[in-house]
Amino acid sequence: MNTEVNLHPSSELLNQFIQGELATGRSVVISAHVELCKTCSEKTKELQALAVSSWVDPDSSESSIRKTAGDYSAMIQNIVKEEQIKTEQLPELVTASLGLLDSSISLPRVLAKAAAKGLVWKKVAGGISEAQLPLDNETQCGFIYMAPGCQVPVHTHEGSETTLVLDGSFEDELGKYRAFDFIIRDQNHQHQPISKEGCLCFAVLDSPLTFTSGLARLMNPINRYRFRKAISKYA
């Protein structure tokens, strides 16, 4: 666990995450950051405790919403006929590492699970590859890999772009971003990311990011990076 993470989701965003208010893509990228970042993991626990107490607070606005009065005994009777789960069935612990050139990194659990069926990498522009991972109908999600020394063409975003750095680093006009940093950029930012040492990110975009360069189509259309997955269960 890296304790030197510089950039985190705001408390407001973490709170929305805890309360299940965000779409899947954004929930996944925050979950991955929380797994990697001790500060946010602790903050998330506190926010969850607050959410729970406001959930059961009889004076909260939510509590004024009442379910339709009715007879729930049939529902209860049906439920208690069901078998109980006696032994813990821990979800499959999927671990995965992405092999990139000469290094490989382990993915956060939620990303490993989401990517368990495999990734198809495509070159999108000089030195940049992406592997899309559809998670919801509102955002475009996927891994982005920048080879050492490569530069993303200047672009802006129509919506917002949420990026989690998984390995390596990149920089733009606004700063330098290292492993586990959580960055949000919107249409107000025009930026030109550059990565000296190479960088692997997971990004969630409100609207597809398209590069104007037509050269991208001339490059090797598909490049599969080795994707190793090992499935194991913890006892």
Binding site: S27, P91, V110, K113, A115, L133
Partner: peptide
């Protein structure tokens, strides 16, 4: 609730709420 909404919106089922908020 999260899984119900995902199902209703026919979102990809590669992950579930229990992966996003693990025990």
């Amino acid at each position: 609730c999260f899984d119900m909404l995902r199902k209703q919106k026919r979102q990809p089922n590669c992950i579930s709420a229990d992966d996003i908020w693990p025990q």
